[in-house]
Design a binder for these strands. Structure first.
Lengths: 134, 134
DNA sequence: GTGATTGCAAATCTTTTGCACTAAA
DNA sequence: TTTAGTGCAAAAGATTTGCAATCAC
């Protein structure tokens, strides 16, 4: 497997006004170099350890939240005990297997909501999340 | 406001093979006597304190889970930091206001999913949850 | 150099657990 | 009496925070 260059993640970070530090670059490469991923802070920290990247768990948490605020990641709520983050930020939904605690993307086109109620007075719909529990 | 009798919650508990103890009866009355409610363990514990019901937080947690297993409550996942429980166990969905952390029911008929993908190999759909974030 | 970022350890918050005590049957 | 249920305090697990050390610019 070819190691990809650093330039593209550095660009991405600069674009998000995030200083391209060693830790952020390494985590961004883990997250974005191999197609879409679903991670938790713990799992990404473990991946980093395995890849011999020295980064603390606190920094992983901070980084995941900064990336999410910058729109590079999306937080998925499927379990009230753990935060999941998705590198796919397009309109889409999820299968969640409660047995293995694993997520699988459902493309936006494969779910059609043909009826939806109006939001409560004075509110605007920010997002509609569909979770199919299997 | 008329105090309702105890008999109906005692029946309900017996029906669920749960011994009708003082604490369970009191919590069941708080939960089911006034229409549908959305609670967290903390909020129900606070309600109990206010109603001068002596019950520990651990018992509130245990009770909420027992009620959920018995099908009297349903757990709703909208926030990865906290568990919410809904006294409405019918097919329905939710608005979730991220500003106030409050839930509002959407009746089952008001959401129509006209397209849904097939579940992954060997899996069965257990439930489809739609959360409209406002 | 200067201010942003990091690491660590401690703190926080929600939830669970172990065990002696109490109460329903 | 017998066994399920409860309370408390301690433990556990996820996440956040404070602050000194380090790094990007």
């Amino acid at each position: 497997m070819d190691a990809k260059p650093y330039s593209h993640v550095i660009e991405m970070l600069r674009g998000a006004s995030l200083r391209p530090t060693r830790q952020r670059i390494a985590l961004a490469k883990l997250l974005f170099d191999d197609g879409h991923r679903h991670v938790t802070a713990e799992s990404l920290h473990a991946d980093a350890q395995e890849a011999a990247i020295r980064v603390s768990l606190a920094t992983v948490y901070n980084t995941l939240h900064q990336f999410t605020e910058a729109g590079l990641l999306r937080e998925i709520v499927v379990d009230s005990q753990r935060c999941y983050f998705d590198t796919n930020t397009e309109n889409h939904h999820h299968f969640f297997c409660e047995e293995t605690n694993s997520l699988q993307d459902i493309s936006g086109e494969d779910v059609v909501l043909s009826k939806l109620p109006a939001p409560p007075e004075g509110k605007t719909i920010k997002r509609v999340d569909v979770v199919v529990r299997v």
